[in-house]
Each structure stands twice: as C-alpha cells, then as structure tokens.
Design a protein around this nucleic acid. Structure first.
Length: 563
RNA sequence: UACCCGGUGGUGUAAUUGGUAACACAGAGGUUUUUGGUACCUCCAUUCAUGGUUCGAGUCCAUGCCGGGUAGCCA
C-alpha cells in the first residue's frame, strides 16, 4: 500500500473504498482502474479530474490504470481525437504502459455474449422504430408497455440478430433489446437497447460491423474483459449501475464495482463538450487549443504546467455532490507552481521611453540579474543598460494619488538591478500624450542600492531601448463575465455572457534580449506583470507571448477599491 | 407529481467513525521585501430545519425543506 495511506492521510470516498478492498482482499489485492474517454472530442480540465483520480489511485495503491477508448459510436468518433487524447494524458504525466485498449477490439466478444443472452431468453430483436420505443417506454409515473416483439422465440431472435449483423436490414429498422422489466421505476431497466444498426465506417474496424453496441451493454463488458476492479464514472451513471450489474450477472462473468463521483464545475467556464464545440464552430474562440479554452490543449498553450493541474485535482478531492470550484483555486495552484519554476525576465508591455539625461550617450553596461529568487540553481544573467530605456506607461503618473509609489515628477524610484532615478521633466506631443520622460540617475546606486542607505518606495522593471526585442503579448481574462455561464436568462444562451475583453492583443511590447531564442511553450515570469508562455504561433523575428496569469497585484486592488 | 443521489463558512474539502468544528482558496488587516510578487502573522461557520435517542450528535433515528440526476437506436 502507498505511503499516503500508511500516513493515514485523509482519503476521499473512492480511495476509502479501494483501501478497504485492499485490506479485505476483495480483489486479491489487485487495483485496476481505467480512464475510458470516447474519442469524439478534446479533453478538458474536467477530464483531468477523472484522469488524476484513476491514474492517481492506480499509482498510490500499486495498481494499474488502463487508457481505454470507448469507441462504440462510429458516427461521432475519429482518429484525430484518439491522437489528441493520448497526447494530453501523456502531457499530464500519466503512463499506461502496455495498457492501451479500444472497446472496438472487443466487438466480437460482445457479440458472442449477446448471442448467449438471447439463448438464455434475456434479449430479443425488436422491430419498433425509435419513435415507437420512446412512446412505449412510459413515463416516471407510468410503466412502459411490452414490445409486441418481446416474446419472439430464441431461434427467431438468433436468426434475426445474425441477419442484423450481416447487414440485411437498414439502419434503425431493428434493435437488440435486453428483456428486463418495462415497469421498472428505473428507466434504464425498461428493456434497454443493446445494439443498433448503423451502416457507418468505424475509425478502427472500418466496415466489419454494421451493428454497434450501446454504452450500457458495452461498458461493463469492457471493464470485465480487462479485469477492472474499480470502474469509476460520473454521477449521471448512478441510475445505470443496476443495468451494469444486471448484464454482468446474467452472463456470470467477472464483475467490477462501479463507483460514481461528481464531475468538475469551475466558475467562469463551461465544460460540456457540446458547448465547447459551439464556441469552436461559431469561431467565438480560435480553436480547440485557444488559450482561453478549458481544454487540456488550450491550457497547455496558455502556459499551465502539468503539475499545476495535478495539484489542483488533488486539492479539489472527489465527492458525490455537485459543487463549483472557484476559478481562483486553479489560479492559485498555477501561480504556486509557476512561482517556483519560472525564470524571471523583464518585459515592457506598454512602453514609454525614459531618457536618462546625465547618463553618457554611447555607453552600454551590463548588469547582473537574478534568474529566479525562488531557485538559487537558476543562476543569473547579464542585462544591458543605456541612456534610453523603456518603462511601463502605467508606472508613471504626472499627478499621482498618495498610494501611488511609482515614478512621478520629483520622486526617486529604483530601476530593477540598475540605478535610482528621479523624474525631472516630461515631453508631450501636441495632443498632450506623454512621449518621453526625462530623468537623472545616481551613479552611486549601481545595482540598486544606495550607499548612504536611503530607500525608495518602488522598483520598476525596464528594458534597454537599444537592445530591446519587439514582441506581441496576448492578454487573457475569463472567457465569460458571469460566474455561472450555464445559468441563462430567458431567451439567451451561454454565449451571451462571453467576455468581450477575454483577449487583448498588445503588439508593441519590448522584451529584454535574453528572450531572443525562446522555445515554443516555454514559461517565463515577466517581473511585476505575470506569467507568460511562448505561443505556438511565435516565430523567429515575431515573438508572441500568452499571458498565463497575472501576478497578485496590490496596486490593482487599491485602484479597484477606490472606484 | 415517479425513482436514484446528495446537503458542514463566500468557495472547496476535513473531523480519530458518538467526544466538543480543522485545512486550503477567496476576502480584510499587518510584518518582511531590489517584483505593490514570494514568505510570514492576525481576523472571518456552532454544521439546511424541527423534533427524538444520549452524559454528550456535524456524525444515529423521524419528519420536513432545498439541490442534482434520470424518459437517446449518445457516452
């Protein structure tokens, strides 16, 4: 058993079940879980919760976790999704070893078991149309009606089922149904469909099959074949568990335990595949990996690290009731990791030129800058300094309120790793916009400390004008303005709450020359601004950064509160 | 109005399984600081309601209230 359990750390209810089973020897000490995505879309942060749960349990209890594609619906599934899912799970840092499986590999076995159920008189071929099945299913308060085909003979069922498989019937003309109880209070037991006829080519089995198993029939069999011990799924399958159990019991085959947990909800985001697809299709975002999307691909491109996501999944734990996690918790996990791992660098997003009047015209000197104060092994680098530099426009105010500590006429501030400067004058264009700020510097403060011990209230980041590299920064905010975009008013849909400011492109940024050869997707902290990640669109000569997250910002809070 | 599941601070999870509500996030205030970052400190709930069992209930029982899920030939 794992260290975590030896230490008697709090176990969530799923892990508690697994721990109890290990203790009682229910599965002979085996722990086998699985992550079973349908390859019909991209993975998102909600899937990450499930992935971390299943792979996490396997690794903590010395078991295995299978990656299994539940590919039983050829009309929706594609190889492209299989590839992206594999990439995403790997990126998150999980390893399934040899245990990569596909539900479609079990089609023959499933078929044979269906035949067995027919022989036992537990399944029948039904000629009702979809509409008729719906009409005879009954309502919550009324039982359904038996299908007129319910009592066909075993031989007839066997014959018809074989013909279904051979392609002798058109799509939708017949189904194979389990013969259970049309009066069951649980709809799932009102003679559920096991097979439907679909003449569609499957991404793996091509045209070998024209009948495809339904989820309820297929899923338990897949679990059984793979000798899964704990089949963990989301809450909406709770009502399906009796059916999961029924199929396995009728067949008398290996029977895993299904356990349901609540799916993840996050403030300011939508999680359903349908809604995410709509955002992509209607071009409300740039694609599945748009950095504003909660998809794993989007988050990767935004600059999230796998460990930030995994820590987040640990912290939220799992439970059986619906809850909505504050986006701020995700952000906290992100910053916690990025703070420790991201090299610091200086970049000016919204530049204004500063001329240091008493600094020699042609001089360039190199100053020592620490790469990461949280990580001594990250070392330091040399940054160029000269008479003209850029600072952030927001770091200067002509008429500053008392709580503004930054540059303002007559006040001394520090340029990080460089010198103290004092603003002496401001140059404006005819329209009144500031074009240059003139300052003087104190040569004795080189490196950022005054030998006489005098202090300054603030430190500014800057970039040497002569050596600066141009860059673009894509500034992101929440995709939605509303905490719960799913909570819609009459006549609106969730897209009504899209944040018009969710993307703001700054194309005139200046970054220090150290960033010349950055690698795609590398993560940096721009001092005093936030964490940034090199976008996949970034090229030599055209640097593009995505703002992953801002730093916590006291000054922004003060401004906000004074409004 | 059928069946299933669930209710602990603003949010998310804990509570030695009946022993006197803990941790984290958010928020507020403060200390430190060459990032208004980081780190650190302080403050912020008597557990949906009402009854009951008990020396003792967030934990057990009853009733009620509230929330979620379920009527695809989707998963």
């Amino acid at each position: 058993m794992s260290e975590q359990n030896d230490n008697q750390q709090k176990l969530d209810f799923v892990r508690q079940i697994v721990a109890d089973d290990c203790q009682s020897g229910k599965w002979d000490g085996r722990v086998v879980t699985r992550f079973p995505p349908e390859p019909n879309g991209y993975l998102h942060i909600g899937h990450a919760k499930s992935i971390c749960l299943n792979f996490g349990i396997a690794s903590e209890f010395g078991g295995k976790c299978h990656l299994r594609f539940d590919d039983t619906n050829p009309e929706k599934e594609e190889q492209e999704y299989v590839d992206s899912i594999i990439e995403d799970v790997k990126w998150l840092g999980w390893d399934w070893g040899q245990n990569l499986f596909f539900g479609s590999d079990y089609f023959q076995q499933m078929y044979d078991w269906a035949v067995e159920l027919i022989k036992k008189g537990k399944a029948y071929v039904c000629d009702l149309t979809g509409e008729e099945i719906r009409q005879t299913r009954g309502t919550p308060t009324q039982p359904g009606k038996d299908s007129p085909y319910r009592n066909r003979s075993v031989d007839e069922n066997l014959d018809l089922f074989e013909k279904m498989r051979k392609g002798e019937f058109p799509d939708g003309s017949k189904t194979l149904r389990a013969k259970i109880d049309m009066a069951s209070p649980n709809f799932n037991l009102r003679d559920p469909v096991m097979y439907r006829i679909v003449h569609a080519s499957h991404h793996r089995t091509a045209d070998n099959w024209c009948i495809y198993p339904m989820y309820d029939w297929a899923h338990g069999l897949e679990d059984s074949i793979e000798k899964i011990t704990h089949s963990i799924c989301t809450l909406e399958f709770e009502n399906h568990r009796p059916l999961y159990d029924w199929f396995l019991d009728q067949l008398g085959i290996y029977h895993p335990q299904q356990i349901e947990f609540a799916r993840l909800n996050l403030t300011y985001t939508v999680m359903s595949k349908r809604k995410l697809l709509k955002l992509v299709q209607e071009k409300l975002v740039a694609g599945w990996d748009d950095p504003r999307m909660p998809t794993i691909g989007g988050m990767r491109r935004r600059g999230f690290s796998p460990s930030a996501i995994r820590n987040f999944c640990d912290k939220i734990s799992v439970n059986k009731f619906n809850s909505t996690i504050d986006f701020a918790l995700l952000q906290h996990c992100l910053r916690e990791d990025l703070n420790k791992t991201s090299p610091r660098v200086m970049a000016v997003l919204n530049p204004v030129k500063v001329v240091i009047e008493n600094y020699p015209e042609d001089k360039v000197e190199y100053l020592d800058a620490i790469n990461n104060p949280e990580d001594p092994t990250a070392g330091s680098r040399q940054i160029p300094f000269s008479r003209e530099i850029y600072i952030e426009r927001d770091d200067f105010m002509e008429d500053a309120p008392k709580k503004f500590f930054r540059l303002t006429p007559g006040r001394e501030v520090r340029l990080r790793y460089a010198y103290f400067i004092i603003c002496t004058s401001v140059i404006k264009d005819p329209a009144g916009n500031i074009t240059e700020i003139h300052c003087t510097y104190d040569p004795a403060t080189k490196g950022g400390d005054a030998p006489d011990g005098r202090k300054v209230k603030s430190t500014l980041h800057w970039v040497c004008a002569k050596n600066a590299i141009d860059a673009e920064a894509r500034m992101y905010e929440h995709l939605f303005t509303k905490e719960n975009p799913d909570d819609v008013e009459e006549g609106k849909d969730f897209t009504a709450y899209l944040n018009p400011n969710s993307l703001n492109v700054l194309s005139n940024c200046k970054v220090e020359p150290y960033l010349k050869d950055v690698k795609s997707l590398s993560r940096w902290q721009f001092e005093r601004l936030g964490y940034f990640c090199v976008d996949t669109d970034s090229k030599d000569g055209k640097l593009i950064f995505n703002r992953t997250a801002t730093l916590r910002d006291e000054w922004a809070k003060i401004q906000q509160n004074s409004k």
